[in-house]
Design a protein around this nucleic acid. Structure first.
Length: 820
RNA sequence: GCCCCGAUAGCCCAAUGGCAGAGGCAGACGACUUAAAAUCGUCACAGUGUCGGUUCGAGUCCGACUCGGGGCACCA
């Protein structure tokens, strides 16, 4: 046995042993330990693991290994989010096969994860690009289709000219493509959607059930994203048009202040209204529409942008007072929100006021407040008394809203309604490396779902296909693949050649882990009952909206399909921060990239994992310039030496050991558990260091290396350290005479009797300032403590000649004397 | 512009309303050593961003502000 702690030697020693023992196997049917499902967000296989992965997986592992030590049957699976553009782009750029590129990277990441000692259950691995996985994407798509939750429509969609594909709303950030930062433009296309908006209310309301269990930041972002507005749809009669135009408003109380109507310039309605307008107006409309289409979202969304618009020379009629108001078109009204038309109340809506001022339109105040928007130029939105509003006069804002809706509903010219900022999820992509959409288009029968027994619709080989993005799916050119007989009429038909957004893959993968290789079902309903939902989800905040919202949507649909009995997929969520270098995100171009592999070679896996955990609270960013893996390494050696110094036999009875040392150990066990369960992994490390220091002292200058309490402490130290530094912990466990694996050794139960103190230090304050302290029995009475405190010389000196006004006694800890 | 989070020692960070320090880095000193490294030990350093309030007592609660980070921002 070596007397030195050597990184490389111990790492090589344990991997094969773990392979043989499979300590993280969660598949045993007869396992009667309580179950816990701990999940790390699965990675995208673009190259090898980096520092960010190292942090995320270190923290996830602490949680997983903690519950194992607590005696739980922990399912801690891993897989790969393996479809997606980078594989395809690598293929285009370097002439590689996207499939081969993906699997190569997966192999590399897998071996890095094993070396990194992740406690994954390697028998549950999945890859979303495997037909055995994505056939269930297709199956789910067809289930959604059957329920009307998957549909095709033509609309103006986000288009990334660089990726040459459509994007979901969620993938457009500040008008730029989330992936490549190109300016996103609009394009009219027929695309597949999932009807997320059907679930908008539940997606919003159920966030309340996650309060306290998810970071509030994420909850806020989701609430913002869904953006529910309550109000009314109000019908305005239009001169020269059969049908009235309905507008959505959250302020039906201000209906009397509506001095004009605005229609989104790029809406169907605007086109129709303009067509029947005078010719010169019509020509101006075309010019304005063209200009709008050229403006990108960045310009359009700029809040300080000047309002533009055009009067159509047509008129609408206010349903409450019959007033004739002009109809304008503008680009500040969105075609795809509400009905694409608004009633403009300039006095009480800033956008409308800006427009009215720009176009010299009238402003009428109907809610009286201290400020006059006509004078200030600032629209008032607060509460006030209704004026100029007929039957609403004299009411407050809230009553007026109710009354207005009542009147509208009575007259059948309006209805209570709500609107969401959330749009349906656009899922089709004109790219190769994704799940084929299982629909066949037949000239006679239209959209025909691929029969379930013909799933999966496998992706054809990429050889011979031109993957270069050109706005249509490369699959369309795979003639052998795309041309099929219609399942209904057997006539000539074509497969849908689009592939699914990869967020479809990740929306339900946590369920697939229950049964990753099943050919019969997407996941087993009974296994879902016993394992799901995920007890603890760990991942970056970058997925705060996209992935988490979609996964929540899928969960609710699957619940309604009666496949699962819960409505939220992730019971608890932990967002780890990012790893930075010198205050900035690492990148090659910045020249501040820290290579994980180099760090691991230099310091070893244990030291890097420990550094990641100890750097600070998990949700904070780690600046690699601020941390010291060398120090972590030094500490591990110190801990190892403590274990190596233990002289007692492993059979000794710890209760015969030194009481002080035992107290240290059991206090440690208690506070360590509290730290981990509160996600304070850095505090957990500090506790481990504290225990190590106590053991060092006990061995050197206390009861000595042969004391049974020292063995007890060293054993618990090894178990606790196994969360952070699995190799060193295994080595310690072995040197203490035990068989592997320490990962499953299980913490000793806390002996509460050891934590009871007979004496403790009481402090005495005078006016909140510390003046004296002395040791007292823990069960000292308030009166006794008060007397002791008042008898103190220090205290008397501090009181001096002033009068004692109040004495607060918190036995046995504290006395505070307030003087006048 | 609105909302959220943070600010504690030279640095990273702890502290159920009750002694500002758990732990670490960097630093000083000592032991061991021919010496150094490693190791072991000892020590020093802040009154908690600013102002005000509540309280017997505030890093902790409340209000305003400064700085830093994040989210939202023509969604009617």
């Amino acid at each position: 046995m070596s007397t030195e702690y050597e990184i490389s030697r111990i790492q090589e020693r344990w991997l094969p042993i773990w392979d043989k023992l499979k300590p993280f196997d969660s598949s045993r049917e007869d396992d009667d330990r309580p179950k816990k499902y701990i999940l790390d967000m699965f990675p995208y296989p673009s190259g090898d693991l980096h520092m960010g992965h190292a942090e995320a997986y270190a923290l996830g592992d602490v949680v997983a290994r903690y519950w194992m030590q607590r005696g739980y049957n922990v399912m801690h699976p891993i897989g790969w989010d393996a479809f997606g553009l980078p594989a395809e782009n690598a293929a285009i750029k370097r002439g590689l096969d996207p499939r081969a590129w993906t699997y190569e990277n997966i192999d590399q990441q897998k071996s890095s994860m094993r070396r990194y000692a992740c406690s994954f259950d390697w028998d549950r691995v999945l890859q979303t690009c495997d037909p055995i996985y994505y056939r269930w994407n297709q199956w789910l798509f067809l289930q959604f289709y059957e329920r009307g939750l998957a549909y095709r429509k033509n609309s103006n969609v986000n288009w990334c000219p660089s990726c040459q594909t459509v994007l979901a709303n969620e993938q457009v950030v500040q008008g730029l493509c989330e992936r490549c930062d190109s300016q996103v433009t609009k394009k009219a296309l027929t695309q597949w959607y999932f009807k997320v908006t059907d679930y908008a209310d539940r997606l919003l309301d159920d966030l309340d059930t996650l309060e306290g269990a998810w970071p509030s930041k994420v909850l806020t972002m989701q609430r913002n994203w869904i953006g529910r507005s309550i109000g009314a749809n109000v019908d305005f009669e239009i001169e020269g048009r059969e049908q009235p135009v309905s507008v959505f408003t959250t302020r039906p109380d201000t209906l009397y202040g509506a001095t004009f109507m605005v229609v989104a310039v790029d809406s169907e309605l605007a086109r129709e209204l303009a067509d029947a307008a005078p010719t010169d107006v019509k020509a101006a409309f075309e010019d304005y529409l063209d200009a709008t289409k050229q403006a990108n979202d960045i310009e359009r969304l700029a809040t300080d942008r000047e309002k533009t618009g055009l009067f159509l020379e047509r008129y609408a009629s206010n349903p409450l007072n019959g007033e004739r108001i002009p109809i304008w078109v503008s680009d500040y009204v969105l075609a795809d929100y509400g009905t694409g038309a608004i009633m403009a109340v300039p006095a009480h809506d800033q956008r409308d006021l800006d427009f009215a001022n720009a176009m010299k339109l009238p402003v009428r105040v109907v809610v009286q407040t201290d400020e006059d928007p006509i004078e200030t130029g600032i629209a008032t939105t607060g509460d006030g008394v209704l004026i100029n509003s007929g039957e609403l006069n004299g009411l407050g804002k809230a009553e007026a809203i109710e009354k207005a809706i009542e009147i509208l509903e009575d007259r059948k010219t309006g209805i209570r309604s709500k609107n969401f900022r959330l749009r349906d999820w656009l899922i089709s992509r004109q790219r190769y490396w994704g799940t084929p959409i299982p629909i066949i288009h037949c000239e006679k029968c239209g959209e025909v779902p691929v029969p379930l027994d013909q799933l999966p619709v496998e992706l054809p080989d990429s050889s011979g296909l031109d993957l270069q993005p050109k706005g249509t799916s490369p699959l369309g050119a795979a003639s052998d693949w795309v041309n099929v007989a219609c399942p209904k009429c057997s006539g000539p038909a074509r497969r849908d050649s689009d592939t699914m957004d990869t967020f479809v893959d990740s929306s339900w993968y946590f369920l697939r882990f229950l049964d990753p290789n099943s050919e019969e079902v997407a996941f087993d309903v009974e296994k879902a009952k016993s394992w799901a939902p995920v007890d603890q989800y760990v991942g970056g905040v970058t997925h705060a909206i996209l992935h988490l919202l979609y996964a929540r949507f899928f969960t609710k649909v699957l619940h309604d399909m009666k496949l699962i009995d819960f409505e939220e997929p992730f019971t608890r969520l932990l967002n780890q921060g990012m790893v930075l270098m010198n205050g900035a995100a690492m990148s090659k171009s910045r020249g501040n990239l820290v290579r994980l592999s180099e760090q691991l070679d230099e310091h070893g896996v244990d030291a890097i994992r420990l550094t990641m955990s100890f750097a600070g609270p998990p949700e904070d960013d780690i600046d690699w310039a601020d941390v010291s893996p060398a120090a972590a390494s030094k500490f591990l050696a110190r801990a190892w030496r403590v274990a190596n110094d233990v002289k007692s036999a492993k059979e000794v009875d710890p209760t015969t050991g030194d009481a002080e040392m035992r107290k240290h150990t059991h206090q440690f066990l208690k506070s360590f558990g509290e730290a981990i369960e509160g996600f304070k992994f850095n505090v957990g490390v500090a506790k481990v260091m504290e225990l190590t220091n106590a053991l060092r002292k006990a061995i050197d200058t206390g009861p000595g290396a042969a004391d049974p309490a020292v063995r007890e402490g060293a054993e618990e130290l090894a178990k606790a350290l196994s969360l952070y530094a699995p190799y060193a912990a295994e080595e310690m466990w072995s040197v203490l005479g035990h068989e592997p694996s320490v990962a499953l050794a299980g913490f000793r139960a806390v002996d509460e009797t050891l934590l009871v103190q007979s004496e403790m230090v009481a402090v005495v304050q005078v006016n909140g300032k510390l003046r004296d302290k002395f040791s007292v029995p823990v069960d000292i009475s308030e009166d006794e403590l008060r007397e002791l405190a008042l008898a103190s010389e220090q205290v008397q000196k501090a009181i001096g000649s002033s009068e004692i006004k109040n004495v607060i006694v918190r036995a046995p800890k504290l006395v505070n004397i307030a003087t006048g």
